[in-house]
Design a protein around this nucleic acid. Sequence first.
DNA 1: GATTTTATGTCAGTCATGTTGACTTATCTA
DNA 2: TAGATAAGTCAACATGACTGACATAAAATC
Lengths: 168, 168
Amino acid sequence: MTDIKSEPNPLFLRTDEIMQAIELLFFAYRDFTGEPDELLAEYGFGRAHHRVIHFVGRNPGITVSELLSILQITKQSLSRVLSQLVAEGFIKQTPGEIDRRQRLLELTEKGTELDEKLFNVQRQRIVKAYKESGAEAVAGFRSVLMNMMEESDRPRFTPKPKRPSSRR
Amino acid sequence: MTDIKSEPNPLFLRTDEIMQAIELLFFAYRDFTGEPDELLAEYGFGRAHHRVIHFVGRNPGITVSELLSILQITKQSLSRVLSQLVAEGFIKQTPGEIDRRQRLLELTEKGTELDEKLFNVQRQRIVKAYKESGAEAVAGFRSVLMNMMEESDRPRFTPKPKRPSSRR
DNA sequence: GATTTTATGTCAGTCATGTTGACTTATCTA
DNA sequence: TAGATAAGTCAACATGACTGACATAAAATC
C-alpha cells in the first residue's frame, strides 16, 4: 500500500489528478465560505450561526435534535449559537403541539432577512461558476460531490419525502 | 430585492438547485475532511497541521512567506503548528542559500510517511467518487470548483511552471 | 557605511467553535 | 408510576483563528 505513483489508471484517476482534487476542494471551499463569513461578522456571528440559520430556514419547525443530527455537533455547541440567535431575535422557538418537550425552531422575519442575504451572496458565486461551466458540468459537479459524501447524508438530496409527518 | 424564488432561469440555475449546491458542498466537505481528521488526531494534530504537511509536501523548499500566502493565515497561527511539526520531526527547515533569512521547508521521512497516509485516505474517497461518476462528470466537477474559487487562486492549477514534481 | 526593509519568530491576549462529563427539568411512554 | 426522551445548563478544556507589539538577522537601498 501507499504506492503514491505509477498505476495503470484512467487519466482522471492518476495521482496528480487526485492531488488536484484535494486542492480544488480546499481553495473552492475556502473562497465559498469567505464572503458569508464577512457578512456574518457584521452581526457578530460566525459560520456556526450560518449553518443553524440555513438549516432552520430550509426546515421550518425542525426540532433541536433533528438539527443536531444534521449538524453532527454536540448540543452544548449548538446551544451557544442557538441561544444567541434566539436571544437576538433571529430564531423563534415554539413548543411542539404533539410533544410539548420539543422546541420547534423557525426563522423570525429578521432571521429570514439574514438568511436571504447570506443565500444571495453564495448564490452569486455559484451562479457565476455554474454559468461559466455549463449545465453538463454542473451535473458532473453534483454527481461527484454526491458520491463523495457519506451514504447516510445522501437521502437528504434525492427525492423529497419531507418530514415523516404522520408517525409517533 | 432578495427575490428568493421564481426567475426565468435555466433549470440548473433555479433557486433550489443553488440551495442544493450549498448543502452538497457542506456535506461533501465535511465528510471529505472527517477521515483525515481522525488520522491526525492519533498524532495529536489537527486540520491545520494537515494543510501545512500537504503544501510543504507538494512544494518542497517552500518558504514560510510563500506558505503563508497560500494558507492565508497569520504567521502567528502558522507558527504554532509549524513549530510543532518541526519539533516533532515531521518538517525540516534549512536556511536559504541565496537569501539566508529564509527558512526553506521540506518534509522529513517521517513527514512524508504521514503525508502519504493522509493522502491515501483522501484518495480512496475521491477515487471512489470519481469512478462512480465517470470521467465526464469529473471534468464538470473540476470546472465548477475552478470557477467557484477566486481568480487569484486559479493560476496554481493551470500551467505549472513550478519546481519539478519529483517526489524524492 | 548607514539606514531601511524584509523574512522570520515570539510573547501575550482574545475569540469562535468544537469537545467531555455531570446534572436538571419537563414531558412522554410503557 | 417508573423509566426514557427532549432540551437545557454549568464547567473545563482544545484547537485554530485573530490582533498588537516587539526582536533578530540579513538583504536591499540610499
